[in-house]
């Protein structure tokens, strides 16, 4: 057995290592945050100072107005929330059918569902833009929302939980005259609440972060989301706004960082669901 001294030294070593790695991981975020919080000339010091002194919110404020970030954030929030609720509903319904009902070609249908997970968005985007156009959904919330309302991953996840609900429970309920929808609403859904929370968070993040599709379907200021809006701060024709990008990045990343801290457990559950149960 190690003596106290050795154990202490080991502890110090481990903490130093942890701190070192944490600094490396956080450095990019810190550097950008610092640049966003300094005024023009200070942000580009040479040699660069890494001390958090002389901070100002000017850059972030300028980015907020210049990039119309408040509006972009509201769009992202609205779209992500609707998609999240929608995905939960469609996943519950389909998962119920796969878990509790028997119907012809059930296996084939489920296989078809799973197969769609393999189709990369890169393949479908060109044609989907056409479809959205012919529906008159370019530059609209429908165009942003509807194509994302079904999630194979969600169906799969919820089905896994439903399969663990004893069949007898459903049979007993149906003898009592409880219909499918009521059973789903009153029994099955509440039992899978943790999974639904994880799925919701996961969907919200995915929609919030989406890049390719929103960039193809939206062409106006009214409906643009924050991820795409950031791009307009990247190469403004006007180089005097050179540093605004850092301010925009801080505003875009902050809500998600806060969410991560608050909902860390759900997030971990959502992310690991695929790994552990897959």
């Amino acid at each position: 057995m190690a003596t106290d001294a050795v154990r202490g030294a080991r502890k110090v070593g481990r903490y130093s290592l942890l701190v070192f790695v944490a600094v490396v991981v956080l450095f990019p975020i810190y550097a950008v945050l610092l640049q966003a919080l300094k005024s023009g000339p200070d942000a580009f010091d040479h040699p660069r100072s890494l001390l958090p002194v002389d901070l100002t919110l000017d850059t972030i404020r300028a980015a907020w107005t210049e990039g119309d970030l408040g509006h972009l954030l509201m769009n992202s929030l609205f779209v992500s929330s609707v998609v999240t609720v929608g995905v939960i509903v469609t996943s519950l319904l389909a998962a119920y059918a796969f878990a509790f009902l028997n119907f012809p070609l059930k296996g084939a249908t489920f296989a078809l569902f799973l197969a769609t997970m393999l189709v990369p968005a890169e393949v479908t985007v060109v044609i989907n833009q056409r479809t959205a156009d012919s529906l008159g959904w370019m530059n609209s919330y429908q165009g942003l929302i509807v194509p994302s309302l079904a999630s194979t991953f969600g169906v799969f996840l919820v089905r896994q939980v439903f399969l663990q609900i004893p069949k007898e429970l459903r049979e007993a309920a149906s003898l009592d005259g409880v219909g499918h929808m009521r059973f789903l609403y009153e029994v099955a859904a509440p039992l899978s609440r943790p999974t639904l929370g994880a799925l919701g968070l996961f969907t919200f993040l995915g929609t919030w972060n989406a890049y390719l599709w929103p960039s193809q379907v939206i062409n106006d200021d009214e409906h643009r989301t924050i991820q795409i809006g950031l791009n307009s701060l990247k190469t403004p024709n006007d180089i005097s706004k050179f540093n605004l990008l850092t301010g925009g990045l801080v505003v875009a990343a902050l809500p998600i960082f806060i969410m991560l801290v608050v909902f860390q457990r759900q997030l971990v559950r959502g992310l690991t669901a695929g790994a552990v149960k897959g």
Partner: peptide, 10 residues
């Protein structure tokens, strides 16, 4: 834009 940037003293 370039002139504005230079004026800002960056």
């Amino acid at each position: 834009g370039a002139l504005e940037l230079l004026k800002s003293g960056v």
